[in-house]
């Protein structure tokens, strides 16, 4: 449960993101407490993925402030027109990304490396670990996602579900404080979705702090302690899974859920 007194791990205030003239995120405030499991739902184009991608700076926010572990990210200074401009150094962003891991919709595995090589890569190149230590740790992470026997296999020989589990192991190996999942099952064949969701659920049971953008409403209900419904680049409705998914107050949330439950019986 989120308590109001817990220091947020991540605090987002006034977040905005433009792509050219299009304003995709139009002012989002969000606190993430340690242990939070937040499911982010919304229609295509609502800005939910962009919100997630701003949190590890895959996208640079146009405006707003992101505070991680009590420290403001970026260097703020007043621009000509009194607006606050923020600049980010590469070394700062690489440090942030080590603390905020990400799992992508399309896995983004490195095809020229084996499963083990993929999981070892961050440990070796970013953390500078010795080969043996990195290999041992990576092997342990593969075991956690049930793929210890696939260590020497290249991504092209893995199923979509296995690829995504390798990608999860790769992110976990860096020991992030916060893990972002960007529609982790959207690129999978329906019969492969379950194995990935089960892996994510195990992480939830370990008390990891996670943000999950998803279309799997049923999974969101069981996974999350908080649900955000995003529409037109703002948080349209938020609350417990019960509040947002079973008893939505806003018409757009109701319409969205009705569409997603259309063929359920």
């Amino acid at each position: 449960m989120t308590s109001d007194t817990a220091l947020p791990l991540l605090r987002v205030t006034g977040l905005r993101k433009h792509f050219g003239r299009d304003e995709i995120i139009r002012g989002i405030d969000l606190d993430v407490a340690p242990g939070d499991r937040i499911a982010i739902l919304g229609a295509s184009g609502s800005g939910k993925s962009t919100l997630l991608r701003c949190l590890n700076f895959m996208e640079r926010p146009t405006a707003g402030r992101i505070v991680l572990g009590g420290k403001v990210i970026g260097t703020e200074r007043s621009g000509h027109d009194g607006k606050i401009e923020v600049s980010y150094s590469e070394s700062e962003l690489t440090r942030v990304r080590q603390r905020v891991g990400m799992v992508f919709q399309q896995f983004n595995l490195f095809p020229h490396m084996t499963a083990l090589g993929n999981v070892m890569e961050g440990l070796r190149t970013v953390k500078g670990m010795a080969r043996d230590a990195a290999a041992a740790k990576a092997q342990g992470q593969l075991a956690r996602v049930g793929l210890e026997d696939k260590a020497d296999v290249y991504p092209s020989r893995l199923s979509g579900g296995q690829k995504q589990r390798v990608a999860i192991a790769r992110a976990l190996a860096m020991e992030p404080e916060l893990l972002l999942f960007d529609e982790p099952t959207s690129a999978l064949d329906p019969e492969l979705v379950g194995e990935v969701l089960r892996t994510i659920r195990t992480l939830a049971e370990e008390g990891r702090t996670m943000l999950l953008v998803t279309h799997e409403v049923g999974f969101a209900y069981h996974f999350a302690n908080r649900v955000l419904f995003i529409a037109d680049g703002v948080i349209h409705e938020q609350g417990s899974p019960d509040e947002v998914l079973k008893h939505p107050q806003q018409a757009r949330t109701q319409a969205f859920l009705a569409r997603h439950n259309e063929f359920q019986f």
Binding site: M58, R97, M102, F104, N108, E121, T125, V126, A171, M174
Partner: peptide, 28 residues
């Protein structure tokens, strides 16, 4: 672009991503 992002998400600098992820695949 996804290969760059996969590398960056692990905390790699652009130079590390180029050397470890992009160039080996590009050379192939």
């Amino acid at each position: 672009r996804s290969q760059w992002e996969g590398a960056q998400a692990l905390g790699m600098t652009d130079a590390q991503a180029m050397r470890r992820i992009i160039l080996p695949q590009a050379i192939k």
